[in-house]
Design a protein around this nucleic acid. Structure first.
Lengths: 342, 342
DNA sequence: ACCGGCTGAACAATCGATTTCTCAGGAACT
DNA sequence: AGTTCCTGAGAAATCGATTGTTCAGCCGGT
């Protein structure tokens, strides 16, 4: 397009016959500056004609801000986590921030990547959505250099956390199975030690208890992957009797659960009903279209971003947030039905 | 952790009793500088003790480089695209670059997001993996400000492109169906105008022709989404006879294809065999475990990153690359079988 | 003694934008 | 006529690191 190098502020100012100082203020719409309307227009015209684009590096060297937020994520192989990422990314973009993406595991494992990511002046803040394993290693490094917000993390952190209403989602799922007549309902949990899974478990236990089924509590620990779901089913199949209903903590694991039942020749929902937490496009294409409780994952990411941005821009006190709006919602498909046993 | 603000280079130099100039050279291992071993050690010791971290912004203001690469992606709702992203991100990280993530559609639609992203000094280069719709709008803006590499893009661009071997993948898929005895094989294409889909179509046509089935060419245009796959099946079902084999251009669309057959009560592979291009974790959990041709998507992303980095660091001439290694590979599952018709 | 050359390191300019002062000139007021 | 005040704008410092140039001392050679 244009011939040479990009014009600098000085070029614009010279061309417009003013000092860089005035040019800067005019182009940034500094409300405290007074210039003649004519001068203002001349500067703006020249800037436009020359295709002036501010040099973000020079700008953030002087000011303290960089206009960049770091997104440290784990498990991008799961659409669930990608939804959170997409929500956060979009919210940052809307607020005028660019986003730096990093993989939590890589960052935790490679010190040079970590220091490149956290190099001074690179980021205004970080959103950390990590597996519970890497978190400790990363958290201190991050928070000692910039403000941070955690997503779906553990309690008791010295950093604000944003989370969805896990307990309510699990209550809704369990309630649904009970309404269909199920009395033997197991919970296929996430990995041992995950508080996200624990919160869902609490909702499941609550609901059973409220229906006087407290004695039927049945928790199988699995994980977040499809393979973990399959393994959990194999474990169930070794028992003399199978529960009639399953609440699975995660939609990806539930895929593995359904495949395992298919491979074992068990009918869903004929012999066992399955409901999961988190909705995604692939659920309706699984071996049995999977009934789920939809949680607002993109909203989760966006809320984390908004909270962080408020903090960065000094607008609000930082604190934990639980997202209750939109509320968890039942998405009925074909994997749940009336129990055939009593 | 430490009390005050982070130390600057000057702080380190002062503490070590040297000038910032020497400190900088020592800490960056400048080979042209000569210092006493004792001085070198003193500077390095002080830097370590004070927890000195270089200020990336100041550094890139002086030097030309920023150590950041932009990843402009589309369709993060598809695991296929996320694989490419993950590959590119990891390769950049390995090479010491941080990655800025942006959504192609958002960027194309919001001028202020675009200029924040492309602000001078923010990026050393961009990898663009966009739908064919937004590409034109973005491409000029991007290439006029930084080096770029396209992923799976159209031919004839003024920018180097990296792509997988689409034709070979489609040949492999088509060949597989022919070996199973199929003679009526349709190709469920991507969106009209997509050259990725066109290249796969060429491989499909090639293979039919080589088996004297050139007259049986049957292309149905769909899209990349599951819904598009479903729609394509509905179109097929309106015909008097159905092909016995289907090559679907994309794994997500193929999910919709399988669901449509299930809903229509047609057996896969009993009445129709389905094979798709691209492999992903969810394929084995679909209503019928889906046979696919695996393409190295992470390698695709990583290769694009490596190529861009070579360009940025002035190591290689920029040119188009087609990835042939690892070669497309057949992943047998349950959606293909011998034809029941002749 | 004097000069050339090497060693080890400091000086100062630079990158581009922001921002705090400062200041010239004219209007308004006494 | 002199003082004050406001308008409109410029000068210069600053952010932190990099790098081309310069320079003080010391050695050996003549």
């Amino acid at each position: 397009m244009s011939a040479g190098a990009r014009p600098t502020l000085r070029d614009v100012a010279t061309q417009a016959g003013v000092s860089p100082a005035i040019a800067s203020r005019v182009l940034n719409a500094d409300p405290t500056v007074r210039v003649r309307e004519e001068t203002r227009e001349r500067i703006q015209g020249v800037a436009k004609d020359m295709g002036y684009v501010p040099h973000s590096v020079a700008r953030s060297l002087r000011g303290a801000r960089t206009g960049a937020i770091g997104l440290v994520m784990h498990g991008l192989d799961s659409p669930i986590n990608v939804d959170v990422l997409a929500g956060a990314q979009a919210a940052c973009a809307r607020a005028g921030y660019v986003t730096l993406l990093a993989d939590a595991e890589q960052l935790a494992g490679d010190h040079s990547q970590l220091s490149a990511f956290l190099a001074r002046g690179r980021l205004d803040g970080v959103i950390l959505h990590s597996g519970y394993g890497e978190e400790d290693r990363l958290l201190e490094a991050i928070t000692s250099s910039v403000p941070a917000v955690l997503v779906n993390s553990e309690d008791g952190r010295p950093v604000p956390t944003v989370r969805v209403d896990d307990a309510a989602a699990a209550r809704l799922a369990t309630e649904h199975l009970i309404e269909l007549g199920h009395r033997e309902i197991a919970y296929i949990a996430g990995p041992e030690g995950s508080q996200t899974s624990d919160r869902r478990e609490a909702g499941y236990r609550d609901t059973l208890a409220r229906h006087d089924l407290g004695g039927a509590v049945d928790v199988v620990h699995a994980g977040w992957s499809a393979g973990a779901g399959t393994t959990a089913v194999h474990e169930l199949l070794r028992r003399p009797t199978l529960p009639t209903g399953l609440v699975v903590a995660n939609a990806v694991a539930a895929s593995g659960v359904l495949s395992a039942f298919r491979d074992a020749g068990l009918a869903v929902p004929g012999q066992v009903s399955v409901i999961t937490i988190h909705d995604s496009w692939f659920l309706q294409h699984l071996s049995v279209a999977l009934t789920a409780v939809r949680l607002p994952l993109q909203v989760l990411g966006a809320t984390a971003a908004d909270l962080l941005i408020d903090t960065i821009e000094g607008r609000s006190p930082v604190r934990d947030v639980a997202i209750t709006e939109p509320a968890p919602e039942l998405v009925l498909r074909r994997s749940t039905g009336p129990t055939s046993r009593r």
